[in-house]
Design a protein around this nucleic acid. Structure first.
Lengths: 215, 215, 215, 215
DNA sequence: TATGAATGAGTCTTCATTCAT
DNA sequence: AATGAATGAAGACTCATTCAT
């Protein structure tokens, strides 16, 4: 996560880093606190303490609490957007296998609370910050959905996948993972995400073959 | 929202204070505010205003903001728990049909923001109130999961459903709806929940027959 | 001030609340609450409950919390002032015996928390209500002091009491009782007021004979 | 009230915030407000203003209003406890003289409203905070009583004091001072504490020689 | 007479944010 | 770059008091 050296093409965001490692540490701490207590309930002082700084020092890096939230969300977008972009291209040849591998990877990621933290945060916050909802919808979820739909459609076109509604298929693919992630991280239920391979195997048994008894 | 006419003889004068209706009205307003702003950011004063009361008056009915939240959650639990209980029994005979009908009903419900509001609230809040997470996990979600799993297993036992992992099937069944609900209400995306029948038909096409091309 | 004349002709029906008794009951309750919690911390609602009324009903009898306090204080003053007046006359003949009897009576009274309650209240309250301090000083304490000093001086004049400073003698006479009353009721210490005769005997042994060893 | 010049070399600039002095200043202000208005009626804002701070700043030093009260009480206890302890030892040789000197000192102290303030506070507050009553009873008053009784008993044993009940003697010794202090500070009466020497002389004339005419 | 309902004015306490060094 | 100190603005909660019946 080395600071990508200013990169003059992209106009430096308002919360531009002034030191090397600090911003990362602060964001880390902020994410932890936001996740644990929610955006409103999280206190700058606790974030500062967790980051090993004084409360005032945070303001050297981020102009406000809100900026922290924005930085946090944005920081997770580029990776995701990028992955989504490459995904569609990469898996065209063998969509089902691609989906299976992808699923397993996602399931494994979702076992990590930190990965789920930002989406959870967005859920909790988008009520009063609609811009964030929109940003997340457009920049993250819509992109991911699009990429997956393309994959499905490619599979259908290539005869590898039965002719189904792509959107429905994407929901069938992502929904169960979302559900298990919520169960695990929100409700603190016993998770099936610990064994991603097994989870995906069971899920794909249903997903690929359906519930109907075969002749 | 009309005062349910305590006695038809004397039409309750408009200025009559409807003490009995108050708790409901307050909860209504609280749900709206909590949903819009989140639990922490919601102000008692706004809730009061929305309920047509003074701030202090709320405390005649609920001892604290937290109590409001709890009442809100609990108020939605008994209905759910009850439905879940009847569900399992009702659908034993023809599980697939039961599932399909149930899905459509749920999808229709989920189009209503108010129905989704409490779960959303729980998601946003359970980080700092683990008791609520536990309550919801045990009293609501675990029960619903259990009822659905029974349904699946009954179907498998009766040969109406292919032999699949029940938990995976439940995830495959609920996950997509959850996903669409989040997309709709959290991210304010264009919803497919408006036409529940079509949505479920597409979803069940995938769910029942799978993605694999049939021979 | 009190609605007098219970008018015994019509026996108040059992269910009928005796309106004329109300002020007394309320004052009783108010004294109890004020004593237990202090004037500021006492809540009208609790007073009402203790008096078996609704909060609003109190305002039919007393226009404000402050009025309650004033009524309370005034209700205890006339008796005291009266007693003080008679005292001086009564004991002129044999001042020492009068003092001894008086002391025992006072000590016995002071064992009763209700008797000490109003003075305690005054102590707690006169910081912010100087009129009350003045009222109490002039109407109660100064009068009592005066009466006692007269008694002492009469004794000195009649040769029954050694020539001492009257004020000092009064302090020596009242102080110990005040001290024990505070210890008992304020600090909840084990009291010597239970056995007033013994207490006064010991106190008078000191008071009359002094500490100096007699030749 | 001058900041005690932490170091004489650099005269603390007037605008320098004297963080170390703050707690003392706050307690000072709190005592003043509590005394003037009573614990409940005193407002944090006024205390803050009197201490030259913002309301919120007080919470940097004391976590609550209650803590302020406790600190205040405790701050006066150690001195007293200590003095009481040394007292008994110091005066053993000549108890009567010790008592006389002690009395004069106490009388002089009691002329200062600030010295009487905390006991007054305790009186007003112990109704609803019984722990404070107990603390004060055990840590302050019982200790002082004990020390004085020892002194008396030593005097009796050494033949310097007539054989009297020690507790009664202590009451006879403290009571008058207590009485005069209340008269002065609670009731705002004209005080005799201004001339402690004279007051004690008169009081000791009674205390030592008694009221009975000597043969 | 009596009260359930309601409220305006206030209080303690918290916290994001700034300031002086 | 960093911080200890400070604060303004806000929010939950309370309570004496009033009102409509």
């Amino acid at each position: 996560m080395a600071p990508k050296s200013a990169s003059a093409r992209v106009p430096a965001p308002r919360w531009r880093r002034r030191a090397e490692a600090r911003p990362e540490e602060i964001l880390e701490a902020a994410l932890a606190e936001f996740t644990a207590k929610g955006f409103e309930a999280a206190r700058m002082e606790d974030i500062a303490k967790a980051a090993g700084l004084s409360k005032a020092a945070i303001y050297l890096y981020f102009p406000s609490k809100m900026a922290l939230l924005e930085a946090l969300i944005e920081a997770k977008v580029s990776p995701l957007a990028h992955q989504a972009a490459t995904l569609a291209a990469a898996g065209q040849a063998d969509p089902l296998t691609a989906l299976r591998m992808l699923s397993t990877a996602i399931a494994a990621l979702m076992a990590d609370p930190k990965v789920v933290a930002v989406p959870r945060l967005v859920i909790g916050v988008c009520g009063r910050f609609p811009e964030i909802a929109e940003y997340y919808r457009v920049q993250v979820v819509a992109k991911a959905r699009g990429a997956l739909e393309q994959l499905i459609e490619a599979g259908v076109a290539g005869g590898k996948i039965r002719k189904v509604d792509a959107a429905a298929a994407v929901r069938a693919f992502i929904g169960p993972l979302l559900f298990e992630a919520m169960w695990t991280h929100v409700l603190k239920g016993e998770t099936a995400l610990n064994d991603p391979r097994k989870l995906i195997e069971q899920q794909f048994d249903v997903l690929l073959n359906g519930l109907e008894p075969r002749a």
